[in-house]
Amino acid sequence: MSCPRTQHLLTEYFSDDLSKVTQTEIEKHLLTCDDCTAELESIQNTQSRLRQWQDDRVPHWDRGKTLFRQEHPGNEQQRRNWFWQWLPSAASFAMLCMLIFNTSISRSESGFTVSFGTADDAFDKNHLELRLAQFGELQQLEQNQMLQDFLARMDERQDGNNLRLMQAVFDQTKQTTAESFDQMYSYFEQRRQLDLENVQVSYQQLVDSDFETLMSMQQLANYVRYPGDAR
């Protein structure tokens, strides 16, 4: 290291509050001074090497607990003794209270409920009413849902029935119409036969009548022709 400014510049370089001007000045110098640049680089390497420290684990020790307990004799012990001394009494008292107040613990969907004696009738009543109202609402909802489902099914079924009925009517109508045509045809045929017979009979009668008329005319003519003869 031969640059006389190296020590001063690098001491400043590692300052916490390095001003912009000083920093610029140092950097400008570093651009032109190989000695300072090399020195800075090696110092930075040293720093990096130091920063590679990884914390070791602390070996087991008592963390001053022994001393602490010595310095606070009976403090923890007193608390512990106090606790164990009063625990049976507290438990007995709690049991007695539970018996006197007729304590009951019930479990519901919303959690546990602690009730005391009959004083909670109002609470029970209200609770029951609330539950009943909830049940009623639930039932009503279910019924409405069922009704909706039923109506939907009915609609569906009704549509099917109507379709089937229309189909049946249509088939029936087709069949009936054919039968009707057959009947009409036979009827008209029958009527035609009857009419023909009637016409034939009538014609025969007419012919007979004509013949009679002719005969009558002939008799009349004969009569007319021969009356004088007869007188």
């Binding site: 020590q7 690098l10 001491t11 400043e12 590692f14 300052s15 090696s42 110092i43 390497n45 040293t46 720093q47 090497r49 130091l50």
Partner: peptide, 16 residues
Amino acid sequence: KTRFYAALKKLKVVME
């Protein structure tokens, strides 16, 4: 600051 730089310089020498 001076001590810190001096320490780093010495450590650099030790490393080298």
